[in-house]
Design a protein around this nucleic acid. Structure first.
Length: 205
DNA sequence: CGTTTGATGCTCT
DNA sequence: GAGCATCAAACGG
C-alpha cells in the first residue's frame, strides 16, 4: 500500500520551525489505513511565540504532544464536535506544529464518502481541517502517533508530485489572535482548498 | 451565489 | 463561565 503511494520521509524534515516545514508539506500524501489524500493547504503555528497557537501559554495536558519530538501527530478536539490534526515540528521541547487544513482525495474515496454523509460532492470530503479528519477516520486516539514510521497506520509519504506554481500565501483562518501572520499556504487553483483567500486576501503567490 | 446562526462539549481561567 | 485552529443548514438576494 505504501509503496504504491510514495516513499517514506526522514524525521529531519520536521526538525525545523513549522513556518519552514509548512510550505514544504504541500503535495505530500497523508495516509490513514486504506485512505489517502494529497496535502493542498496547511497552516503553521509557532508555539509559545505565537498568540494564535494552543501552546502560547505554555504546556498543558492537551498540548503535551506539541511539546514533544517532531514527526508525530498533535490531534485536538474543538467546538464540542470536531477533531483536527497537526504534524509536530522543531526539536523536542519546542511547540511548533503544522495544521493540515485540506487534502485532495486519492484513495479510499468510497470509505471517505461513507464517513462523511454530509458531503454533497467529493470536493466537500477533505476541504477543511475537521472534514479531513472525519474522512480519514482520525480522532483523539491518534494523538501522538508517529507519522514518520507509520507504525499506527498514519503516515506521510512523498511521491514526487510538486505544484506547478508557487504556493498561495494568506493569513490564517478562524483565529481571534495572531490574525496578521501570513502563515497559511495553499496549492494554487486546487478545488479542495477550504477557502481561496484569507482575511487580508492573498498576500503572495 | 453570499452571509448568518445553531450545534455541542472540552479546556483553561 | 468564556471561548474555541469548525461545519452544515438555513436563510436572503
Amino acid at each position: 500500500m505504501r509503496d504504491e503511494l510514495g516513499s517514506p520521509i526522514g524525521r529531519d524534515r520536521f526538525r525545523r520551525p513549522s513556518i519552514e516545514v509548512a510550505p514544504d508539506m504541500l503535495g505530500l500524501v497523508l495516509v490513514s489505513g486504506d485512505r489517502a489524500g494529497r496535502i493542498v493547504e496547511v497552516e503553521a503555528y509557532m508555539g509559545e511565540l505565537d498568540p494564535g497557537s494552543h501552546a502560547y501559554r505554555g504546556p498543558t495536558p492537551r498540548t503535551a504532544t506539541m511539546f514533544g519530538p517532531p514527526g508525530h501527530l498533535y490531534v485536538y478536539f474543538t467546538y464540542g464536535m470536531h477533531w483536527c490534526a497537526n504534524v509536530v515540528c522543531d526539536e523536542d521541547g519546542r511547540a511548533s506544529a503544522v495544521l493540515v487544513r485540506a487534502l485532495a482525495p486519492l484513495t479510499g474515496v468510497e470509505a471517505m464518502r461513507a464517513d462523511r454523509p454530509a458531503a454533497r460532492s467529493d470536493r466537500d470530503l477533505c476541504s477543511g481541517p475537521a472534514k479531513l479528519c472525519q474522512a480519514l477516520g482520525i480522532d483523539g486516539s491518534f494523538d501522538g502517533v508517529d507519522v514518520v514510521s507509520g507504525s499506527d497506520g498514519v503516515m506521510l509519504l512523498d511521491d514526487g508530485w510538486v505544484p506547478e506554481a508557487p504556493p498561495v500565501v494568506t493569513t490564517r483562518i478562524g483565529l481571534s489572535a495572531g490574525v496578521d501572520a501570513p502563515w497559511r499556504w495553499c496549492v494554487p487553483g486546487d478545488p479542495n482548498v477550504s477557502r481561496p483567500s484569507g482575511r487580508g486576501g492573498i498576500i503572495a503567490r
